[in-house]
Structures are given as structure tokens and as C-alpha cells.
Nucleic acid binder design. Structure first.
Lengths: 183, 183
DNA sequence: CATGCCATGTAAGGCGTTACATGATTTC
DNA sequence: GAAATCATGTAACGCCTTACATGGCATG
């Protein structure tokens, strides 16, 4: 149930509404859930019944009223405990492209090259999007130095992921071109 | 439904049973499903009803009888079509550690260091396991050069993933230690 | 004598996804 | 006048996972 703690963590650095959480989760890559309503609102109910959150309803005219969630002391304790006592899991990945590649043993190298070039293009696009996101991301006021640094490191992690995948792609292309020359 | 094509691809390079498929999927990292019975046997039924597979039952005494699946011409055509006409998706990742890190803004750098060191250890273990697997992996006979090369590239991809994650971890540790010194 | 491997399959449940529902305001 | 944004929530479905079921043989 790490979604709950992810949400708790976000609310701990800044109280906000379910809708705000949704937007953040939708365009962050390291929060690997899609950021759908079902999960978020369900999690908020759960966290509230654990007394990890309190709610403050803000009525605004011209827009539906907001529920701003605040983390309680109990919630903060639980969050810290979870962070410190959860043994770090090994990261996982899903690369459907590797499935395609694995089945391509009998394909012509030329056909494979087309595929790999498409993949490279895809990765480049993604990398640029992510870099653009980093440039636009300005830390909200009242954010500590350490929080800024952590956010930076997370961005670094994501960018590194795409960059190393791109480097691998280039190695693959080199190998393929050698195969094509040898034909 | 890329599980089906993953299975089709495996059977294309070598006919085998559901049980064999299960073992392969369980200890391959790039086939990101757990390799559970439910998926595999269901997929085999589907692929057979599509006429992508034929079955050959091998009765063996002293052990339950095997069903060896072979890919049909129709199946091979479908596989190649899928491989060549599926636009490569961007890879995804799940790094629960980043969730922990994201919530650690108010934690002491010393506590964070402990966590990161644990993560580093975890990654090192995983990397060694993977390298060991590669050393033991000997290509089955009748495997083409290109198939061997592809398998190599997939291994390369996986190892690169862990290595670049480890390098990132070291950058994080450096930053953290600087923070500790500055205190 | 218990555990594990071979080998096939089924059942139940959790997590996560898309889509639905509502309703006012702003933007094109 | 259509579509997007703000805002909260529900419903249905599908994928994937664990666990169950069977049963003989081999290993410690």
C-alpha cells in the first residue's frame, strides 16, 4: 500500500486537495500510478480513518468546494516510520520493446534497425519532455533546502534512466549496422 | 496482450511446454510478468484457438505427460507482424525507493544515508545475481548468431539499468555526505 | 518423512485502469 | 456552442497475483 504513503508524503510537505494530488501524480513519473480518482479518494478516506489526516473544507464561489487535507502528528510519525523501516525494494521496469526485440531473432537486420530507430526517437522525445518539465518545475515557497535537493535527485534519476537507455540503443544500432555491412 | 506475443516468440525459437515457459519467464527480468500458471496456460489456450500453435503430447513414464507447443506458419506471420508494426512504447519503471526518498524531506541526512546505503546494497546484490545468470546462460543448440546477439543485448540492457542506478546512488551519497559535513 | 521438482490446470481476490456522473465557470 | 478546468466521487472491468488441487518420483 505505498500509494497511501506517497500521498501522505505529498501532503506532509504541503496540504492540498485530492484534485491537486491527482494532477501531481499524473505528471510525475516516479509516482508510478496513473493518478486516477478511485485510488486517490479511496486512499484519502483510509488515511483519514487512520487519523493520519484532518480535513478543512474551503467553500469557494464560482467553483466546487475544496477539501484541503492536513497531516496529523500521528500521520507524520507513521510516515517517518514507514520511510525508515521499509527495506528499499529493488526497482522494476517494463520495457515492452525488449519483448519485441526478443522475438526478432529471425528478422532481417534492416527491419530491426527501423524498429530500433523508432525506439530511439521515442526515448528522445520522452527525455526532452522530462527535461522541459524540470525546467518549468519551480519549488513551491516554504520548501526546505533538503526538499529541493531531493526533488533534484529524483529528476536526476529519471533523466539518467532515459539517457542510459538511449546509450544502450546506440550500442544496439552500432551492432546492427555491423551486421548489415557483413551481409 | 503482449504476454501472448512474448510466449509466441519464445516458442518460435524453440518448441516447449507450458511448464518450461513458466520457468523461463520466472527468472527473466525483461519478461515483466511473474510467470504464473494462470496467465501462461490461458495464453496457450488462446493462441491455440487462433491457430498460432499446434500441440504434441509427449507421454513419459515416471512423470506427468508434457504438451509441447509448436508455432504454426500463421503464428509466425502474426508474430512478425506484431513485432514490426507495434510502435515501440516508452519504457516504464517502478522505484518504490523514490517514493520513500520523496517523503524524506524532513528527515536527518544521517537517517537518509542509512536508507540509501541499504538501497545501494540491494542493487549490488541484484546486479551480481544478474551477472551470474548471464555467465550461466548458455545458448541452446540450433540458435542463430542473431538470436545470440539479441540475447546479449537484452542482458546488456538489464545490467546497464542496475549500473546506472548504482551510479546515481553514489551521486546521492556524495551529496548527502556534503550535507552532513556542512551541519 | 518432508520437501522439492515435474506438469497441468482452476479459483479467488486485490490493485489499478477506464469510464461514468454532476455541475459551474472560463476559453476558443 | 463546444471543450477544457476545477472538484469530488462511484462503478465496472481486466489484468495479474497468490493460493489451491492433483499426483508420482527423487532427494535429503
Amino acid at each position: 500500500m505505498s500509494v497511501n504513503y506517497a500521498i501522505l508524503g505529498l501532503l506532509n510537505s504541503r496540504p492540498m486537495s485530492g484534485y491537486d494530488l491527482k494532477k501531481i501524480m499524473q505528471d510525475s513519473l516516479h509516482m508510478y500510478w496513473s493518478g486516477n480518482n478511485n485510488q486517490i479518494y479511496k486512499a484519502l478516506v483510509q488515511l483519514r480513518s487512520d487519523d493520519f489526516l484532518t480535513v478543512e473544507t474551503h467553500h469557494q464561489d464560482g467553483a466546487p468546494s475544496k477539501k484541503i487535507y492536513h497531516v496529523t502528528d500521528k500521520g507524520r510519525v507513521a510516515l517517518d516510520a514507514w520511510i525508515c523501516s521499509t527495506p528499499p525494494e529493488t526497482p522494476e521496469f517494463k520495457k515492452p520493446f525488449l519483448i519485441q526485440l526478443a522475438g526478432a531473432g529471425r528478422l532481417k537486420p534492416e527491419a530491426l534497425e527501423v524498429l530500433v530507430l523508432q525506439y530511439e526517437h521515442q526515448l528522445n522525445t520522452q527525455l526532452k519532455m522530462q527535461q522541459e518539465k524540470r525546467r518549468r518545475a519551480n519549488p513551491f515557497p516554504g520548501c526546505t533546502d533538503q526538499e529541493k535537493w531531493i526533488e533534484d535527485m529524483i529528476f536526476d534519476n529519471i533523466l539518467t534512466f532515459y539517457q542510459s537507455e538511449l546509450e544502450w540503443t546506440r550500442r544496439v544500432l552500432e551492432g546492427l549496422r555491423q551486421k548489415i555491412r557483413e551481409e
